[in-house]
């Protein structure tokens, strides 16, 4: 059987130990070899700093709360309807939306790496990529929720989704009480990033 030779040979040790210098060294050699274009790097950074983030997901949630036909379309084929909204792409190629109810609270993790629905939520927060979240979310989701200040009402079951394939999950939080009659834009304000990962709840209107 083949073995992975890089188990015994870690090329990153050829780079400077300081991570900032390591990045610079990689960018320099790859640019000299004609393999990356610094302007393309700027465009990638601009995309994830300014264009793609959790407001995309918030719009989806607000619309699902407001429009039963849209909600049904999400249930039938989330990838298709999200693509029609322009929310498709890297790390969101196959989307499933999971709905919180009075009986079940959903929470998403990736224990093996840090898979996350980038087109809807942007790049993952630090804690989502942390060992603590990856290790604990599957075994003790309620203790993790307590770290976020969330205590679920008695009787709610927790369903944790470990993103082990290329399917990406977005939690549809429960619509908060007191939000009746609010329009989509106002509803979006109630939808936090964490509520769409399942480590938070949608906010009550003030």
């Amino acid at each position: 059987m083949p073995h992975d030779h890089h188990d015994h040979d870690h090329p990153h040790t050829l780079l400077p130990p300081d991570p900032a210098l390591r990045v610079k060294a990689l960018e320099t050699i790859l640019t000299e070899k004609g393999l990356i274009d610094p302007a393309a790097l700027d465009a990638i950074i601009d995309t994830y700093e300014h264009k793609i983030g959790p407001r995309n997901g918030a719009r989806v949630v607000a619309r699902a709360w407001s429009d039963p036909e849209f909600l049904q379309a999400l249930r039938d084929d989330a990838t298709k309807i999200l693509d029609e909204m322009g929310y498709f792409g890297r790390q969101g190629e196959h989307m499933v939306v999971v709905e919180n109810t009075a009986q079940t609270h959903n929470m998403v993790v990736c224990t093996l790496c840090s898979c996350y629905p980038w087109p809807l939520l942007g790049i993952p927060p630090g804690w989502y990529k942390s060992d603590a979240y990856r290790a604990r979310a599957v075994r003790e989701p309620r203790a993790v929720l307590a770290d976020f200040g969330v205590a679920l009402p008695e009787g709610i079951a927790v369903r944790v989704w470990d993103s082990t394939a290329e399917i990406r999950y977005l939690v549809l939080p429960m619509r908060p009480e007191g939000s009746e009659g609010l329009g989509e834009e106002a509803l979006m304000e109630l939808v936090t990033r964490d509520s769409m990962i399942g480590t938070g709840l949608a906010q009550a209107p003030v």
């Binding site: 224990t111 804690w127 290790a135 075994r139």
Partner: peptide, 15 residues
Amino acid sequence: MGGRFGDGPVVPEAE
């Protein structure tokens, strides 16, 4: 590492 013990608290972060 899923299910591993001992990693400490998860620290929330602003959006």
